[in-house]
Amino acid sequence: MLMVRAIVRPEKTGIVLSELLSGGFSAVTKLDVYGRGKQKGIKVGDVYYDELPKVMLLLIVNDEDKDDVIRIVMKNAKTGADGAFGDGRIFVSPVEEAYTISTGKSGL
């Protein structure tokens, strides 16, 4: 199992979630987060925005589904044809175990 953490622009969240659902990935945790990437925030006029609003989507998937999830997120979170700074990041890490609290069963 793998955890896919996708940090995306808030305005892209709806389409990303919709396409993940269409792709068979309905189990998602969504968190509103704030941060900055390589661009170190943005300056608009005299105002400097150090922390920008983003949405983090967390999915636990089987190893063989990783590429499909990444493809869906990359395609739908990108702004414009070439993308732009601030479109987000995807992180993938291993998950050793997962349990359903109500049943006590392990796995997905």
Rank of each mutant, 00 (worst) to 15 (best):
R89W: 06
S102Q: 11
I60F: 11
V69H: 06
K40A: 14
L58K: 09
I15P: 01
G14A: 12
I70E: 12
E11D: 14
G86M: 06
V44T: 07
L59P: 00
G23H: 05
E51P: 05
K38M: 09
G35H: 08
L21K: 14
N62C: 06
K66W: 02
V44K: 13
R71E: 15
N62S: 13
M1S: 12
L57H: 04
V95D: 07
A6C: 05
I72L: 13
A77G: 14
V55T: 15
D50L: 10
L52Y: 09
G45M: 08
I60Y: 04
V69P: 10
K66V: 14
A27H: 09
L57R: 02
V55S: 11
E51D: 14
K12L: 02
D50E: 15
E51Q: 13
I90P: 02
S26T: 03
K78C: 06
A98T: 15
L59E: 01
L21G: 04
V44G: 01
S22Y: 12
E96W: 08
V16P: 10
Y34Q: 11
T79I: 13
Y34S: 09
G35E: 06
G107W: 08
M74F: 06
K54W: 06
F91W: 10
G104Y: 07
V4G: 01
T79D: 09
R9E: 04
L2H: 13
G24A: 01
I7C: 06
A77H: 08
K66D: 03
K30T: 15
T79R: 14
G35K: 05
L108S: 07
M1H: 09
K12C: 07
S102M: 09
V28H: 01
A81M: 11
P53D: 09
D65N: 14
D32S: 11
D68S: 14
K105Q: 13
G37F: 03
G86Q: 05
T100Y: 10
V33E: 02
S93D: 08
G83L: 10
Q39P: 06
T79G: 07
R9A: 07
V95P: 02
V44E: 14
G45L: 08
D63F: 05
Y99F: 14
S26R: 07
L108V: 09
A27M: 09
V28F: 01
Y34K: 12
K75C: 04
N76K: 08
T29E: 00
T29V: 04
G86P: 09
V28Y: 00
V44N: 08
K54V: 03
I90E: 03
D67W: 05
S106C: 04
S26W: 03
K105R: 15
R9T: 04
T13K: 12
F91Y: 15
T100I: 12
V73P: 08
T29Y: 00
